[in-house]
């Protein structure tokens, strides 16, 4: 069986001091919501970028549905990066048109509906939006794709708690049973209730991979408490 995401000996060096990712072996099954958790600089964003072909591995490989990142995987991966990637002259409406043009699995009705619910004017330019609004627009675009794998880098980091709830709600209700969602965040308390599985990253290595059920039932603790324990400074 092909995994939604599989890494074999994945290593990435930026400078010469220490690797951002060090010999990562990871297999994520389809149909789950997975939290990729770790402190700042643990390699979460690096892993996401490698999955999208935005970085070239130093060694090892990453596969999505058994394929290396390329045109085929880009059709099924919906990625939310931690920065604004839309041209600032575009309006929210133009951004929707753009996604509709390039992604066959983009659902326009869903996008328009989310835009309305989030109270964002279609004709507002990206340039004039606040940072939070930009993040909402990008998340709206990414979640409106009926994708096989969602890679969300800090989807709730920059928004208020009410919107946070709406976003998490969208993530749970929006995706179909075969889709996999990877959420990268350090706001563990907020995402804990939606996660099936967690992967802890620590200094470029996997510190733990377990289902939330295992953590709660067998270890008798919460993900949030376990995280604080594992990463105690």
């Amino acid at each position: 069986m092909d995994f939604a995401l599989e890494c074999k000996g994945l290593t990435k060096w930026y400078g010469n001091k220490f690797p951002a990712l060090n010999q990562i072996d990871l297999q994520l099954e389809k149909g789950r919501i997975i939290g990729l958790l770790g402190p700042n600089g643990s390699g979460k964003t690096t892993l996401m970028k490698l999955c999208n072909g935005l970085l070239t591995p130093t060694s090892g490989e990453v596969r999505i549905n058994g394929l290396k990142p390329g045109v085929q995987t880009k059709r099924v991966v919906s990625y939310l990066p931690e920065r604004t990637y839309l041209a600032d002259w575009m309006t929210a409406g133009q951004a929707i048109d753009y996604f509709k043009d390039f992604y066959a699995n983009f659902n326009v009705e869903k996008a328009e509906d989310m835009l309305r619910r989030l109270g964002i004017n279609r004709n507002l330019k990206i340039r004039t939006m606040s940072k939070g609004t930009r993040e909402k627009v990008q998340l709206m675009l990414v979640m409106s794709r009926e994708a096989g794998l969602y890679l969300l880098d800090e989807p709730i980091g920059g928004v208020d708690p009410a919107t946070r709830d709406y976003i998490l709600d969208t993530i749970i209700t929006n995706y179909h049973p075969q889709a996999t969602v990877v959420i990268c965040t350090h706001l563990i308390h907020d995402v804990e209730k939606v996660l099936d599985e967690v992967v802890f990253l620590h200094q470029g290595r996997i510190a733990l991979q377990a289902t939330v059920k295992e953590i709660q039932e067998e270890r008798g603790t919460t993900v949030d408490a376990l995280f604080r324990e594992v990463f105690r400074c």
Partner: peptide
């Protein structure tokens, strides 16, 4: 630059 995050994730060769 930042826009490349979108450019390189489009399903285009």
């Amino acid at each position: 630059r930042d826009q490349a995050y979108l450019t390189h994730t489009l399903p285009v060769s």
